[in-house]
Write a protein that binds this DNA or RNA. Structure first.
Lengths: 248, 248
DNA sequence: CTGCGACTTTGATCGAAATCAAAACAGGTG
DNA sequence: CACCTGTTTTGATTTCGATCAAAGTCGCAG
């Protein structure tokens, strides 16, 4: 929150319903206006690949709506998700043309794109955007490192609880928690995608979700719609320290 | 390599035998000179904790010599390494005072430290350093994401091969490969630290190293000194695509 | 409503790594 | 040199999650 005293002043970009975290009011200059003109939108269908690992990416983008994933795939088909992009998240690595992993839409997805060249020009002339991107990259790094703990040391049950807590917390922050303390949201991922996130098989994911359901930790209607009646109870299952992570 | 056209021009800092990747010749200004004056060195013994997770860190630093690790610890003692710092690596997160995980020396270690306040002042006034830090953070993020694939989807044997390949490649780049193609280096980690890196137990680490030794993929003298007679052969064991990773 | 395909759950069995336990091996010290 | 402590190796057994297999749902298109 405002590590450089800027974070509260995002600019809502043109017709986008979200706030672009990479480009904010403070950065408003002629260059930014020029950038606006290179902006374009792109829609993707569920399952569609946006970029293949190794491809050139000639743009950077913000997620306007929907969910996308970053994932590594090994030749034999084993897959590991390494990033999850929700609305307002940024896609692209300034200064690096080659995508190191696959980017895939897991739902209907709209991106707001900027061409690489003018964006990098803006980067050179506008230090504030550089600082913002450093901030955002540090956040991604924190998330990746928390994820490493999940992958390396947590049990299947703890992994599932952690994922539900992460998505639930992020959604709750957006949509407001319900007055009675229940947290209600839709899982944006299939069981298979959850498995790829957590380094499990989809059968194990399903079994652990069933177990948490059976024990009343969560409730689920129709495969995706989740209710967490008692969030602290869920947090106990994650194996994390009880404070729930003050880190970000 | 010179993503912003700067990377080749690091400044060797004062008496430090290493190059500080965060602070380079291009950044040379009065501010940098001021920063130099706040510089100080600190030595640590193997096993010594440099920062505890949650502590305030009032400095940033470069590793001059030795090896340090970043790791998460759960209350019940499970531990996961999330970062490995070798000479010339940078420690510290500009704009963030609280350390999110433990930093521990695993060998004799010397840090070259800068106080936080003047360093962040420099950051505000010197865009080139900002760009450099963004570069370095993106490298860390790439490393973390490759690590996630290792943790989530690789077998114990592939994990060990990957770790030896990573350390070997990094050392080989530094010390030069031997003419006959053999790669020779010292593992900077105990079996336990390797286990914490890879999300395994130390017994499994030991067994897999023994297996690779038995099959002639590696040779080891006295617990730490490793010889890889045929690097491509080792790479086959990592499960990675044969190109060995053009990513960094 | 009916039927189809994709997604999900559940069950039975297997196997890789964890755990428990002990022996062997450094490598430093008196 | 012999001892001592911490690290590493090896062995026996258990366990959690993977794998193989089948049945059950969901949600949609006709």
């Amino acid at each position: 929150m405002g590590k450089f005293g800027l974070a509260e002043t995002h600019l809502t970009c043109g017709d986008c319903p979200i706030r672009h975290r990479a480009v904010c009011a403070r950065c408003e200059t002629e260059e930014l206006a020029a950038l606006e003109e290179t902006k374009y939108y792109r829609d993707y269908e569920p399952g569609q690949t946006i970029v293949w690992g190794g491809d050139e990416m000639d743009f950077v983008a913000s997620v306007v709506s929907g969910v996308a994933t970053l994932s590594h795939t090994m030749e034999d088909g084993r897959r590991q998700m390494v990033g999850l992009l929700l609305p307002s998240d940024f896609l692209g690595r300034p200064g690096r043309r080659l995508a190191p992993y696959d980017v895939t839409a897991v739902s209907k997805l709209t991106l707001c794109c900027f061409r690489r060249a003018p964006f990098e020009d803006l980067l050179l002339s506008t230090p504030a955007i550089n600082r913002r991107l450093l901030e955002m990259t540090l956040d991604e790094l924190d998330a990746a490192r928390e994820w490493m703990l999940i992958l390396g040391r947590k049990t299947a049950r703890e992994k599932i609880a952690s994922l539900i807590a992460i998505v639930g917390r992020r959604d709750a922050a957006l949509h407001m928690m319900r007055a009675d303390g229940q947290v209600v949201f839709d899982l944006p991922l299939t069981r298979e995608a959850m498995a790829d996130y957590l380094g499990l098989t989809l059968e194990t994911v399903s079994r652990q979700i069933s177990a948490l359901k059976r024990e009343g930790v969560i409730r689920i209607e129709g495969n995706r719609h989740v209710t967490v009646p008692d969030f602290p109870r869920l947090m106990e299952e994650t194996g994390d320290d009880t404070d729930g992570g003050l880190l970000s």
